[in-house]
Design a protein around this nucleic acid. Structure first.
Length: 516
RNA sequence: GCGCCUCUAGCUCAACGGUAGAGCAGCGGGCUUUUAACCCGUUGGUUCAGGGUUCGAAACCCUGGGGGCGCACCA
């Protein structure tokens, strides 16, 4: 589509002449660049060649020549490639800044060196174009490390202009929808995803070192279990049956412990059909591990090792800043029982063994709402979330969750009303959840039946009886410790960002009505 | 789902209810050590959409849409 505005005094711009676009705006800009593509093809050049061999990445050039003094020339030849980010044209000398995934470097392009025809092509290059370059390493009078260019090859012509070279993209909507543009121009965005990558690869290394086997279990579930959450539903055509996207990895991984695999983990996407917020994306990445012969204390220890190592690998330090406070992750993480935390907050002893009417009265006094179907344990959790959660800054294990809200966790060996369970909180966010796994098939059936009763009483997020899982437990599951970690949340913590969308490449958004 | 905020050129941002502007990008010209290059000139607008108030609306009101934040939801 070309300029279509009927116009009385600029009739020449609306007529048949579309080879010399006038004006500006996106349409004219794209037309001009497409014209350049045609011109190149017309003279036998390919604006989109198939491959290019480079000798050095840009960091490699900087590493080997970063200490060159100002005004130095070398005979060191390099072949590099990157996207043109900046261009400064002083007439017979062009400076261009190219960027590859490792760094940026300046090209020093002299008409006298490269020749008249090639120099004319350089003048036609646009910001955003990909180029491959051959030349020698030098520094300018001002000391800027540069490639003195004797050959430039266009590797891909950009048809669309880049965002503002100084400000980049700021509109969050555009940044997330056009993540490709965000990644090109915003260093911060690239940093977030580098950290995310380091975290995940660090976890894999730590777990491999400790003898864990990585596995993949089904995403499509007949019943979505292992957590309290509403699932996404889908349908299998050939089987003509409903299926659900998983909300947790837990139940399949523990079947593998029954199978004798002893130490397994999975890093995978889970899906929860719930609200979207700065802390919640409908699809997110969980790491879950299960270790035979271990209990919750072992799992707390491995949680500390995983996250501390990830910080070291991603940031080069275990010291991070949380809400302006310096926190060394290598220090031991405090542990506090959920009931103790709530007791402190309300000023009297609170415990799930207390009659539900007493706990309801406490909830009423503190403005915590509850359903009539909830028992003391679940209301205590509500009190904890309202009164305690927001105050947790440094990594803290909250332990001893009531049995009622922990249908897959083993009862505490010293207190039948709570479980051997912990959740890790940092900066008011839940990062991890682990426990001594319930392996008694008879008790597990009773817990499932309580879940199902609650679901039938109207609590949509409660679970059902998973008969196949019970059958597995009947074969015998060794004593086992289990752990789930929200990888996106760990990446947020280490990247120092407040929104999960900063560490999810393509967060869930409503679709655009029209792409321009 | 509810409340508050926001949406202006490709990008970043202005405009007491009174002719829609600047910087960058683009285009034309100049410049062989610039670096957010600079200097001169210049093109470019469905002000998110629709309706209303007004002599006059980018601005005020209503409806709708996108997004953000908070609450709710979310072990």
């Amino acid at each position: 589509m070309i300029v279509s505005e009927p116009n009385t005094d600029h009739a020449d711009s609306t007529g048949t002449d579309e080879t010399t676009p006038t004006g500006s705006g996106l349409a004219a800009e794209k037309l001009r660049r497409l014209q350049r593509v045609d011109d190149l093809r017309g003279r036998g050049d390919n604006p989109y060649p198939y491959r290019f061999d480079r000798s050095h990445t840009l960091t490699e050039v900087r590493a080997s020549h970063g200490d060159l003094e100002a005004g130095a020339e070398t005979d060191d030849e390099v072949t590099v490639a990157g996207r043109i980010m900046l261009k400064r044209d002083t007439g017979k000398l062009v400076f261009a800044t190219i960027q590859d995934r490792t760094d940026r470097i300046q090209l020093f392009i002299s008409k006298g060196v490269i020749g008249d025809d090639a120099f004319a092509d350089v003048k036609e290059l646009d910001i955003g174009d990909w180029v491959g370059v051959h030349g020698t390493v030098m520094t300018t009078r001002a000391g800027e490390l540069s490639v003195k260019t004797d050959r430039v090859e266009l590797l891909s012509k950009a048809i669309r202009p880049l965002p503002d070279k100084w400000h980049g993209l700021t509109d969050t909507d555009t940044r997330f929808r056009q993540r490709y543009a965000d990644l090109i121009v915003n260093d911060e965005a690239r940093r977030h995803f580098r950290i995310r990558h380091e975290v995940i690869s660090s976890f894999r290394r730590t777990l491999a070192d400790e003898g864990f086997v990585e596995v993949e279990t089904p995403v499509l579930h007949v019943e979505a279990g292992g957590a309290h959450a509403r699932p996404f539903g889908t349908h299998h055509n050939a089987l003509d049956m409903p299926l659900y996207l998983r909300i947790a990895l837990e139940l399949h991984l523990k079947r593998l412990i029954v199978g004798g695999m002893e130490r397994v983990f999975e890093i995978g996407r889970v899906f929860r059909n719930e609200g979207i917020s700065t802390r919640h994306n409908p699809e997110f990445t969980m790491m879950e591990l299960y270790q035979a012969f271990a209990d919750w204390t072992d799992v707390m220890a491995i949680t500390e090792r995983l996250i501390t190592a990830a910080a070291q690998d991603a940031l080069g330090t275990t010291v991070i800043e949380i809400r302006g406070e310096q926190v060394d992750l290598a220090d031991p993480w405090p542990r506090v029982a959920m009931c103790d935390a709530v007791s402190d907050a309300v000023g009297s002893t609170v415990h799930p063994s207390q009659p539900v009417d007493d706990v309801r009265a406490l909830a009423d006094r503190h403005g915590v709402s509850y359903e009539t179907s909830w028992g003391s344990g679940r209301i205590i959790e509500g009190l904890f979330e309202k009164l305690c959660e927001a105050d947790i800054v440094r990594p803290t294990f909250v332990t001893g969750h009531p049995v009622e809200i922990s249908p897959l966790a083993r009862v505490d060996r010293n207190d039948p009303h709570v479980t051997e369970r912990f959740e890790l909180f940092v900066d008011a966010r839940e990062l991890a959840n682990g426990y001594s796994e319930l392996n008694d098939p008879v008790e597990q059936r009773l817990r499932f039946e309580e879940e199902q009763a609650a679901k039938e009483a109207g609590d949509a997020e409660r679970g059902t009886v998973d008969e196949d899982y019970l059958r597995a437990l009947e074969y015998g599951m060794p004593p086992t410790g289990g752990l789930g970690i929200g990888m996106d949340r760990v990446a947020m913590l280490l990247a120092g960002v407040d929104s999960i969308r900063e560490v999810v490449l393509f967060p869930t958004l409503r679709p655009e009505q029209e792409i321009s």
